[in-house]
């Protein structure tokens, strides 16, 4: 993996994440979940449900949300917020897509790790 000057870290290609699916990124500070919505947008969240830490990467992706596999909370991919009656938030990781490569914000990750 290359370290970019700006503090963006490349983790893979857009094509590595299945449509309406997800991919786990193993990071020292804890797993990160990459999601790709039906319209091809990539999102990154800490792979932990605000409810009981369920792995969001294992959920079903629909619209711009994911349903947690453990107890069906629905998490908004853009804000990380739980939807509906549930309350809680999963950290959003800033990301950029450049020439088909996915770059995550190293500072956000460092904070996560701390």
């Amino acid at each position: 993996m290359t370290m970019h000057m700006s503090g963006w870290i490349e983790v893979g290609g857009v094509g590595d994440v299945p449509l309406r699916g997800s991919r786990v990124v193993r990071a020292p500070g804890g797993d990160i979940a990459l999601f790709k919505s039906a319209d091809g947008h990539i999102f990154a969240l800490r792979d932990q449900c605000p409810h009981k830490m369920g792995p969001l990467s294992q959920g079903i992706v629909h619209g711009r949300s994911v349903t947690c596999p453990l107890h069906n909370w629905i998490i908004d991919l853009e804000s990380g917020e739980a939807q509906g009656a549930d309350h809680g938030c999963s950290n959003v990781i800033a990301l950029r897509v450049e020439a088909g490569r996915i770059l995550l914000d190293a500072r956000a990750l460092a904070l996560e790790a701390a």
């Binding site: 870290i9 893979g12 995550l104 190293a106 990750l109």
Partner: peptide, 10 residues
Amino acid sequence: PLMMELAEAA
């Protein structure tokens, strides 16, 4: 899973 060497990068 995709891997990332965060310690090194940070």
